[in-house]
Amino acid sequence: MFEARLLQGSLLKKVMEALKELLNEAAWDCSDAGIQLQAMDNSHVSLVSLNLRAEGFDKYRCDRNLSMGMNLGSMSKILKCASNEDIITIKAQDNADTVTFVFESPDQDKVSDYEMKLMNLDQEHLGIPETDYACTIRLPSSEFARICRDLSQFGESMVISCTKEGVRFSATGDIGTGNIKLAQSAKVDKEEEAVVIEMQEPVSLTFACRYLNSFTKATSLSKSVQLSMSPEVPLVVEYKIEDIGHVRYYLAPKIED
């Protein structure tokens, strides 16, 4: 028996927004520690990793590990039937071929349930080694979304360069060049509005704007986002999900042919 009840059901709706542009289907791996999902986008350029800890749920029960293969388009349709204020419960029997989503209104006067067929998925799991990144940059998530949107107009690729002075995002294309420099915040009233850079060595890497823009679909999950970079390894874009977990995106840098 698996059962996970989330008081703040809107978080699951936001998680779905953060996943569905990159992934058509994915396996939700449930254990007594919580729910994890790891999947590559169809082109194998980027990797998405979601972690929702058991403690973050109001009620959590997982008698035996199970992997639920879900079509995210179908799951998204079902979650659209939940109001933002609803409490959401995900339920499945052991070895079942369906999962049930239960939506309760806050005052319990409306309860809906939707059953969805599960899929058999060939899972590909990648091992991600522990990495000490040369640069980590924390910035407001809305600022990062704006930068990705603005620079996408100039070209397909964006260069992210981090030095001790700050971080520079640039893109070049037919119409010209765009550069956006962010300096580290000197002082801030609110932690989530700060730009904070930790740097061991300067790094400059090139990434496809298309994927960065897809990652920013997670913006509503967190007020800030962390970018981690080292030379010649994938960028990590991490959005924390309140007290419950995180979603991380790994994007391979572009390489010269």
Binding site: M40, S43, V45, S46, L47, A252
Partner: peptide, 14 residues
């Protein structure tokens, strides 16, 4: 010409 590298170039299947 630039090429987009794949994530499987860096991380391996487990």
């Amino acid at each position: 010409k630039e090429l987009q590298s794949k994530i499987t170039k860096y991380y391996y299947h487990i």
